[in-house]
Each structure stands twice: as structure tokens, then as C-alpha cells.
Write a protein that binds this DNA or RNA. Structure first.
Lengths: 171, 171
DNA sequence: CGGCGTTCTTAACAGTGTCAAGATTACGGT
DNA sequence: ACCGTAATCTTGACACTGTTAAGAACGCCG
């Protein structure tokens, strides 16, 4: 896909039109603008992520660390898509309904594992910390801020959060 | 500044040239291209971040959590700059010498607090986890993936990592 | 069959990064 | 003091971008 070769900024409406065999302004019959196209793509990205995570989340034998590893695998397999989903507020409309709904659904999978039980897990520190840790790891890896060599130590890093969460949940 | 009003993508060479009172192609006498300009800006961003963090890092009375709070304050005060520093590989040349050096220096400040002592702290899980957690938190906040309301609970979230790090350092 | 909405095309607008050619300016060595 | 060289700037152009306007085909429903 074009997204993965060039990154989100490399996607031009005209290029996707050419690739579809239609002409420059045709996309505007389907999307009001570029941001809406990108938001739609990002939304299916969240759906795919959720599909990958879902079986692990409902399996009691799997830990948060396992979820994290799968999460990172998704990001490494689709770096362009992942960057689009989380990066740049420029390319995406964060207010888009489908998009924010899709991202919330993916987040709730994490909350199941890392959070206090019950509703409004949204402001529960546990899942937020877990998501932040994993997301930060992915971002720093992608932007080469940390050496790519730590790949094997990822489970170890992810486990660092578990004592704190256990302590917090108990309280 | 223009960066903060429009975000990294809103910065155009022509606009900065206009603002400097010179004409479109003048910047090319100082930078080989836009990416180099942006990389230079990002590098001074890392320097500023390091200056903010330095006093806390050398003060034994301050915890990793304190560093994290200051880090997040920096990001919230300069969201455009922060996005440029970490976000988009499109606008920045990660291979840039000044840039990668500046980011490494900022990272070493974290490593002092959160890591095993001694050299090559780069592959020590502690500081990497700390940085990832804080960075992920900032990113998710900026892109409105998590509600802005958790601001007061930030110290609590950052503390979740401390038991794990303590355990690991002891080993 | 007629009309309407969807999809498409072509053409144009303003804006962008970048390069080439040449003018201007500043400055250091003789 | 002067001359040459390097740094800096200007103008003009190229190919590209997102977006809009005006209109041409097309299918579908009454």
C-alpha cells in the first residue's frame, strides 16, 4: 500500500485517484476532504488492531505483557497506518465519530486486563499507564529515539508495570 | 511562534521567509532543505527540555515522578515543538547528528533517575520504560485519545512504574 | 419516459518545496 | 586600497499539492 511506502504525509489524494484509475477530483464524490479519507483509514486501523487483540484479551491465561507484545507487533507490521492512527492531528480529524469510537473500543480491551473492574474504566490509572507505556515504546522505536536492539527485552520492559498495577488494584 | 499556532505541517519555508522579511528561496542559503531546518528546531527543543530537567535530575530529593511531571509540563507548554521533536519522521531527519545527540543527552537525564548505575544505560529497561510511559502519556493526551481530565492523576499514574523499577534494580 | 442523485471529468486557483541564474554584499589577504 | 571569493539574497520557473466550479455520463425509481 501507498501508506506504508511513503507514510501518512506521502499519501496524496491525487495519487490515490491515479491508483484507482480515476481522475484527481473523483475522491471528492466520496469524501468531503483529505482529512475525512484519512480518518476513515485510521478507523479501520483501529478495528484491525482490536481484532488482533480481542482473543488475547478474553483469554485469562494471557497477561498484559502478552497484549503489549501483540500490540507492538501490529505497529511494526503497519508503521504507516499506526503513525496515521496516533500521530499527526494534521492528517486526521480527532472529532470524527467513527474514529473516536473505534479507538475507544480498542482501548477497552486493554482496560479489561489492566484495570479495576467495573464501568468507567476511562479514568482508571492502570489501563492508561499500560496503553501509554506500550504506545510510547512504539513511538520511540519508530522514530529511532531508542535503539532497535531492545526488541527481545520488550516483555521484560512491559512487565515493569505489573507490580505497580497489582498494588493499585489491591487498594 | 508559527510552529505553535499551526503545528509542524503548518510551517512552510515560504512563510518563515516572509516572516523574516526575506524572499522565498533565501532559506536555502542556510539550510539544505526544509527537513534540515526542522531538524535544527527540534534539536534546540531537546536542549530546552534538557535544561528544564537537569536541576531535577541532579537533586536526590526528586523522584522519577517529579521528572515526569516536569516533562509533561514542557510538552503541554510547547505542543507544536514537542510534536515536531517526536512525531513525524516526515518533517525531521532522524539521522541528523545534532538532533540525535541532543535527544540522547535528554534521555540520559532520565536514565540517571530510573536506571541501574554505570555506563551503557541505553539498553537498561528502567529508563526506557520511564521515558516510554511519559512520552506515551503526552502523545495520547495531545491526540485526545484519553480524556484531558486525568491531569491531576498524572503523578499517580507515573508512580505505577516505581515498584517495578525498584524490583528490577535490586536484581 | 422523465427526473434526480451519484459518480465522474476537465479546468482552474492558490499554495507548496526546490532549483537555477544572477545580483548584491561582506570580508580577508596581498 | 583593492580584488577575489564566499555568503547571502532575489527573481523566475518547475512539478506537485488540496480544493472548488461547471458540467457530462450513468443508473435508478416513480
Amino acid at each position: 500500500m501507498l501508506l506504508e511506502r511513503e507514510g501518512p504525509a506521502g499519501v496524496s489524494l491525487r495519487a490515490v485517484a491515479r491508483q484507482a484509475g480515476v481522475s484527481q477530483a473523483a475522491p471528492y464524490a466520496h469524501f468531503v476532504g483529505k482529512r475525512e479519507l484519512m480518518s476513515a483509514i485510521a478507523a479501520v486501523g483501529f478495528s484491525r488492531l482490536r481484532e488482533m487483540l480481542a482473543p488475547l484479551a478474553s483469554d485469562p491465561a494471557r497477561s498484559i505483557g502478552d497484549l503489549g507484545v501483540t500490540y507492538i507487533e501490529f505497529a511494526k507490521a503497519n508503521p504507516g497506518l499506526y503513525t496515521l492512527m496516533f500521530g499527526s492531528r494534521e492528517h486526521i480529524d480527532s472529532g470524527d465519530v467513527h474514529l473516536s469510537q473505534a479507538s475507544r473500543q480498542a482501548f477497552e480491551l486493554l482496560a479489561m486486563k489492566a484495570g479495576r473492574k467495573g464501568p468507567n474504566a476511562v479514568d482508571d490509572p492502570g489501563p492508561i499507564a499500560a496503553w501509554s507505556l506500550v504506545h510510547g515504546l512504539v513511538m520511540l522505536l519508530m522514530n529511532e529515539k531508542i535503539p532497535a536492539g531492545i526488541n527481545e527485552r520488550l516483555p521484560e520492559i512491559l512487565r515493569l508495570l505489573e507490580p505497580g498495577i497489582a498494588e493499585h488494584t489491591r487498594a
